[in-house]
Amino acid sequence: MLKIENLHVSIHGKEILKGVNLEINKGEVHAIMGPNGTGKSTLASVIAGKDIFEVTEGSITYEGKNLMEMSIEERAREGIFIGFQYPVEIPGVSIANFMRTAIDEKRRYHGQEPLTELEFRKMMKEKAKVVELTEKLSTRSVNEGFSGGEKKRNEIFQMAMLEPKLSILDETDSGLDIDALRIVANGVTQLKSPENSTIVITHYQRLLDYIVPDFVHVLFDGKIVKSGSKELALELEHRGYEWIKQEYESANNQ
């Protein structure tokens, strides 16, 4: 579904990703872990299409197509969803209007008829349940005045509405208390199917207790330096990242 090969990415001339290789197949859950500032969020942003990043080398292929040639909105309509670490507040744009526009555009793109008002409302109602949001939500402005937990729940709500094939959740667990974490994680789990894939970017093991990964990767110094099964996440939780760093540095020195 997604194939990243030797990806090098710079911002303002500074190289952040230095040769990332990653392949994700249908139905898989991958966790990307690693200390702060190693390029995890950059990877998510590049996949989303943020243009301040410059891809200097390598490729990203999504469903056989060159992702770099697709516009931001095209990527979304083709089924890529990014759950942001810091969702933007958009005063004056209601969630209902926002989602209505997004879903209409996606359906038009795929040659489908637009939903009727009734169908749309029904869908909003059902999907809001996934993350235990109330119906009052729909008239509120996107993320405006939302608590940290509400913002993240709103991200997962949008994910439920847009039914992506590939979801990338960037630090969705950051700033959440235990209850909010459970709601968000349950939401993601409900949306899981053999047809869609998920990349979970996180610092901590705790989210992975709910969303169990098939593969765990450690991103360090702009590269994936270690990959393993879900046990790797437990080991990282237990031992920290220092040993990874040492392993990486001693390998580099040889």
Binding site: V88, P91, G92, T101
Partner: peptide
């Protein structure tokens, strides 16, 4: 940032601008 956010949900640039301008004027 708002433009980018809207577009990552599949909304084209033109409509994203419209949504933001409409919101601005609505107040």
């Amino acid at each position: 940032d708002a433009m980018f956010y809207l577009r990552t949900r599949g909304i084209c640039e033109r409509n994203a601008r419209m949504l933001l301008m409409f919101a601005f004027a609505n107040e």
